[in-house]
Structures are given as structure tokens and as C-alpha cells.
Design a protein around this nucleic acid. Structure first.
Lengths: 327, 327
DNA sequence: TTGTAGGCGTTATCAT
DNA sequence: ATGATAACGCCTACAA
């Protein structure tokens, strides 16, 4: 009834249990014929080492914590499922698994600490990192291993993997400039979100490169990350005295809002989003696609090989669709 | 450095370790003043029982397995993140956590068994249940606890929670009939998917109720769950000799495809989807919303209170948007 | 009410 | 090369 243990295997193979353990953990130390006998017994019994016992003795759970937040009711479903799958897949090679937990913003660190002290997780993956995010320093102080999707402000000295957001919006701007656009607006979410700031930076840099920065006053809008806000922004931009002919969004949610406003008014307005969510596909919205699978793998690698390189910047890729057409 | 153990707490509190254990597991058996001293020591040290040790001795991991599949590149991101969050939240009350694993369709059961024998999970949550899904009987035979989001064909005798898909499409049809539609088509995914079959049943029943079934020949289309297929279906329906004025989809992916075809052609065609994905919001697609949060909670409850009711059917709710307008 | 002993399944150390 | 012993941290008897 109960799953077989080393002892059972040993009995069946006619050896002691340590020999069984050796077969599993130091195969070279055991005579081939004995090994085969033990392996046969293992296969016959369908024996699997008990992970809890292993964890207990090794003081390692081979579990990685991930805080799963409730889906934003106003935003688009994001890329969590892709990220989670990638991380699970990456962890598999090292025999690690993802453990999900929930928490409020305020007590996320406390929850992580509790889980860590309880030996339930070896480390944690952070995301949604803000410019002055308190979590990295807090976890460092607590000596809890972690890796983050995203970096804090200036010099993030913790292990992180991030998308080069600036490069993403810059690529979007380049694309639009190439199509002949000269007035290109930018819409993004809350100030303080590192992501939004870096996206803005890419937009500004690319405009500047083409000498287009001067005419861009009043074309940088920031607000909540909702479709409704995006729609308001779209209206505002189109009502502008000298309206832009193109808009770059820091995410698909806002970009889709803008696109809806444009389509509703029958206005010609090129729009490029960010994230390449399924909704972008549905709406024919050009969007900057993040290599989330690569991010997931890199994060797990960074977390498991502690002390490796402290940061990794990955390049997103512009996916062109109908929403960015000739002006 | 290492997290504190019962022993440490005992030393600080000046009692034996079993007294500490008693404070935690049988508080009434220990004198209040002693208890307070122990509790103070626990708080001071930030002691947390080691879960691996607990699991080992209790032969219970308090972990629930969930197979995370790669995101379908052609479909819309589904509701996994909502479901995962709901289940994590529900598990929290019982001090359970979700453990993610990956697997191919063929060896999902083998992986679950391996995890279970290894004591890594106590049970597993299944989803994407087919009419003749082999997993429920297989897991039952292996005596591995599980609960499924969805049921098999006729009498599912395993613990399951499901959406009343038939009621969902029926509600969509009712809504359309009320708006005056008389020719209402139905598009769905692969045959064999229990979900699609039940959606079709609801559509047919509702049509029949209004005596609209006769004219519906050729208005039931089945294919792959992709936007492209939906678009082809939309074209096909609009090219029909006697085209429908409304379409109900078994999911948002197909429905959005249909909607795109209709909008591209400037055709008046009411469309209702299923799942209420973020893309539906973006597209103003009316859609049947599943109470995923309730599903998640119910599934965990079903899994943890083994032997409870074997099935629970939850009602979805139609969310009306612009895509279903007057004919 | 509190303390003592044993075992959960594994691996590492040390003999043989 | 293989076998005995101890330890990881916890809990549940049982004894005091």
C-alpha cells in the first residue's frame, strides 16, 4: 500500500539499504552485477526516493517559490502562464519544481521568509520589480536566494533577467519612422514602474536620434494600465491641436485602448503595443514580443547557479501587424 | 544561520522540545504560563516548523500537483492564471500549496505517479478532460487522489467540478433569440472534446425550444481552435445561401475569428463567445464568463475532503457587449 | 503537565 | 565493495 522504500528495494535485491543508496548516488562504487540486481528491484517495485526525506537530510527542498497575483480585472491577461511554464520546464532539468503562493504586496517578503524558514522553498522568483523595489534588499538581508524578472533603479546588484524595454520601444519607433511617421506619441502606465520608465527612455532616445524630439511635447501620456485609460489617451491625442500619426504603448492594454479610440473615430493612427498578448493578435495590433520562454529559463538558471552573472538583458522583437500601416 | 528548530525554541524557553511541540499541536495540554513562555521564544526566534520533517513523519506533503501546459500559440491565453490563483488561494486555508510540473500528454499519468510515489504531492488537479479521458480511471486505479476541472462522458464517478457549458450556450442563444435572431450558427473545436459537445448540446436544445432547429442545417461548424479557423468559419457562414444572423462560439478564439471575418466584410453578424478572455473585452465580444474563481476553490475543496460529493456543476454567466446587437 | 524514546526515509561517515 | 550507525526535524505514543 505504502510506497516502497530503500529497505524494500534492499530486501528484494538481497543487499543492504546503503548499497541501494549507493547505486542511486554513487553508482561507480558498486559492482556492476550487484548494481543490475538493485536496479531490477527498483524497476520492479517502482521505487522512487522520498523527496521529503531527501529534503530533510539535505536541507534543501528543490522548490522555488512564485507569488501568483490575482489577474488584473481591467488589464489583459499577461504572460504569466508562459513564464510559469518556462520556469517549470527549466526547473525540471535540475529536478526543481515551482511552488505557488499568494500574498498581499505588504507581506510578500514575510510570506517568503516563512516559507523559506519552513524549508518549503529554497528560493523565490520575483517579478514586477519597481525602481526602488524594497524586496531585493530585504531578501538579500534575510539571505534568501532569489532571482528577479526585472531590475531596480540604477545598479541592480541582485540576480536579474530583464527585457530591454528601451530597445523594444526604440524598435517600435524606428519601424514607425521608417513608415514615414514624424509625430509619434507614447503612452504608459504608472510612474515609478521601472518598465514604464525604460520604455519611455527608448521612445525618447529613438525620437531624438531622428531629430523628432522637439515636436513631441504633450505626446507622452501616463496613467493607469487599463483599456479605458488607453481609450481616453487615444481621444486626447486625436483631439490634440497637432495630433500624432502614430502611438507607441508601453503595454498592449493601453495600446489597445488607443487603437479602439482610433477605430471608433475612423482616424488614421498607427499603433504599436508591447507584450504581444493574445488580444494583440485578435486586434491586429503590432506589438513588441518579449522572449518570455528565454526569460524563464534564464531566471531559473540564475537562481540555481547562485553567484553567476548578476544580470542578463534580453532583446524583445517587434511583431508587425496591420495596426502599424503607412500614414 | 540555520533556521531554528524545536530544540532551539525549547532551550530558549527552558523546556523540553516536546513541550514546544505540544504548544503547537495540543495547546490545551500545556499550562498557560509555560505556553506563553514558549510562544515568546517562538516569536523571538521566528521559528517555523520544518515542512519537510512534518511531511516525512506525517506521510503527507500538503502539495497539490498541477500540470502546466505550454501556451497554445494559436489560441488565446486562457484562464489558467485565474484558475491557478484561485486554487492557490483556496489551498492556503488548508496550508496546501500548488506544485507545478510539465509533461507530455502521453506520460502525464506516469509523471503524476512518480511525483506521488516520491511523496512530493498528495494529489493532482486535472483539466482539459475528454469524453473518454483515460486519466481518471488510471489515477483511480493507482489510488492517487485527484479532482478534475471537467467531466468525462456519461456518468463521471470521479470528483469533478465543471461549468455547465450547455447552459452557457443556451443562455447565449436565448439572448440572441430575444434580440430577434432566428438563424443562429454554432462553431466549436475538435470533436471528442467534452466541452465542445456539451456546448453544442446547449445550442441545439435552446434552438429546439424556440422551434428554430429545422433551419439550422449546415450551421454547426467544427474545427481547430484557432482564430484563423474561426475566420474561415465566419466566411463560410456568410457565404451560405441562407446565412445566419448570429453565431455562438464554444470559445473566444473561434468567436473572435468569426467576428473578424464579419467586421472585415462589413457584415452584420451578431457573435457571442465563450470564456470571456481579455481579448473578448478588447474586441467588444459578448461572451459567456466562467466562474473560474469558484471552480478553483471547489476543486481544491473536492480534492482535500476526499469522499465528498462527486460532482459540482457551476453556472456561467453571459456578459453582453457590442458584438451582439440588434439584427 | 512535562519529559523520554522511537521512527518517518534518506544519505554520509565510518568500519569491515 | 558492502554493511552498520547516526543524523536531518518533527510528531506521537508512553512514562514520569
Amino acid at each position: 500500500m505504502h510506497p516502497p522504500t530503500v529497505e524494500d528495494v534492499a530486501r528484494v535485491a538481497g543487499v543492504s539499504r546503503q548499497t541501494v543508496s549507493n547505486v542511486l548516488n554513487a553508482p561507480q562504487r558498486v559492482r556492476p552485477e550487484t548494481r543490475e540486481r538493485v536496479e531490477a528491484a527498483i524497476a520492479k517495485l517502482g521505487y522512487r526516493p522520498n523527496r521529503m526525506a531527501q529534503s530533510l537530510q539535505a536541507a534543501t527542498s528543490r522548490m522555488i517559490g512564485y507569488r501568483i497575483k490575482p489577474a488584473d480585472p481591467h488589464g489583459l491577461s499577461s504572460i504569466h502562464d508562459r513564464l510559469l511554464h518556462a520556469m517549470s520546464e527549466a526547473g525540471r532539468a535540475a529536478d526543481h519544481h515551482m511552488l505557488l503562493f499568494t500574498a498581499n504586496d505588504e507581506d510578500e517578503v514575510a510570506n517568503v521568509q516563512a516559507l523559506h524558514r519552513a524549508g518549503a522553498i529554497d528560493g523565490v522568483v520575483l517579478y514586477g520589480i519597481g525602481i526602488d523595489d524594497p524586496r531585493p534588499p530585504a531578501l538579500r538581508r534575510l539571505r534568501i536566494p532569489f532571482a528577479a524578472f526585472g531590475r531596480t533603479g540604477v545598479d541592480s546588484d541582485h540576480p536579474w533577467v530583464d527585457i530591454d524595454n528601451a530597445a523594444g520601444t526604440a524598435a517600435a519607433v524606428e519601424h514607425l519612422v521608417e513608415l514615414g511617421h514624424r509625430r509619434i506619441a507614447f503612452v504608459s502606465g504608472t510612474v515609478g514602474a521601472a518598465v514604464a520608465d525604460r520604455c519611455a527612455e527608448g521612445w525618447r532616445t529613438a525620437l531624438d536620434k531622428h531629430g523628432l524630439l522637439d515636436g513631441s511635447h504633450g505626446l507622452n501620456l501616463r496613467g493607469e494600465d487599463t483599456i479605458a485609460t488607453g481609450e481616453r489617451f487615444g481621444d486626447a491625442l486625436l483631439d490634440h491641436a497637432d495630433p500624432p500619426t502614430a502611438v507607441v504603448g508601453a503595454n498592449d492594454t493601453l495600446a489597445i485602448g488607443v487603437l479602439r479610440a482610433a477605430r471608433r473615430r475612423g482616424a488614421r493612427l498607427a499603433v504599436v503595443g508591447f507584450d504581444d498578448t493574445p488580444a494583440a493578435v485578435a486586434m491586429d495590433l503590432s506589438s513588441v514580443r518579449q522572449p518570455i520562454e528565454a526569460v524563464g529559463h534564464a531566471i531559473i538558471r540564475a537562481l540555481l547557479n547562485e553567484g553567476g552573472p548578476t544580470g542578463l538583458l534580453l532583446n524583445p522583437e517587434l511583431v508587425v501587424r496591420a495596426s502599424s500601416a503607412l500614414p
